[in-house]
Amino acid sequence: GATAVSEWTEYKTADGKTYYYNNRTLESTFEKPQELK
């Protein structure tokens, strides 16, 4: 079976905060997504 690849990509803001962006739902969040835990 195919492994589900996380759609979340980790980015940093200009002031160094980490956030996560989902390229399928176009959602962004500062909290670590469930799929990455």
Rank of each mutant, 00 (worst) to 15 (best):
1 G>N: 14
1 G>I: 14
1 G>V: 13
1 G>Q: 13
1 G>T: 13
2 A>H: 13
2 A>E: 13
2 A>Q: 12
3 T>E: 13
3 T>G: 14
3 T>H: 12
3 T>K: 03
4 A>N: 13
4 A>G: 12
4 A>W: 11
4 A>D: 12
4 A>V: 14
4 A>K: 05
5 V>T: 13
5 V>Q: 12
5 V>D: 12
6 S>N: 11
6 S>Q: 11
7 E>K: 03
7 E>S: 04
8 W>S: 00
8 W>F: 01
8 W>K: 00
8 W>D: 00
9 T>F: 10
9 T>Q: 11
10 E>T: 10
10 E>H: 03
10 E>I: 11
10 E>D: 03
11 Y>K: 15
11 Y>I: 12
11 Y>S: 06
11 Y>P: 00
12 K>F: 08
12 K>S: 06
12 K>E: 07
12 K>G: 03
12 K>P: 03
13 T>G: 08
13 T>E: 03
13 T>D: 12
13 T>R: 04
13 T>M: 07
13 T>L: 06
14 A>L: 10
15 D>H: 05
16 G>Q: 03
16 G>C: 06
16 G>T: 00
16 G>L: 03
16 G>Y: 01
17 K>L: 13
17 K>A: 07
17 K>P: 01
17 K>T: 11
17 K>M: 10
17 K>I: 14
18 T>S: 10
19 Y>P: 01
19 Y>T: 04
19 Y>F: 11
19 Y>G: 05
19 Y>K: 04
19 Y>H: 04
19 Y>D: 01
20 Y>N: 00
20 Y>M: 01
20 Y>S: 00
21 Y>K: 07
21 Y>N: 02
21 Y>R: 06
21 Y>F: 15
22 N>D: 02
22 N>T: 01
22 N>I: 00
22 N>R: 00
23 N>R: 06
23 N>P: 06
23 N>W: 12
23 N>C: 10
24 R>Q: 15
25 T>Q: 01
25 T>K: 01
25 T>V: 02
25 T>W: 02
26 L>K: 15
26 L>F: 15
26 L>P: 02
27 E>N: 04
27 E>M: 08
27 E>W: 03
27 E>L: 07
27 E>P: 00
27 E>H: 05
28 S>Y: 15
28 S>N: 05
28 S>I: 15
28 S>H: 10
29 T>I: 05
29 T>H: 04
29 T>Y: 05
29 T>D: 02
30 F>V: 07
30 F>E: 08
30 F>L: 08
31 E>F: 08
31 E>M: 09
31 E>L: 10
32 K>W: 04
32 K>E: 08
32 K>N: 05
32 K>Q: 06
32 K>R: 10
33 P>C: 02
33 P>Y: 02
34 Q>W: 12
34 Q>A: 14
35 E>S: 10
35 E>R: 03
35 E>P: 08
35 E>M: 06
35 E>Q: 08
36 L>M: 09
36 L>R: 02
36 L>A: 04
36 L>W: 09
36 L>S: 05
37 K>W: 14
37 K>P: 10
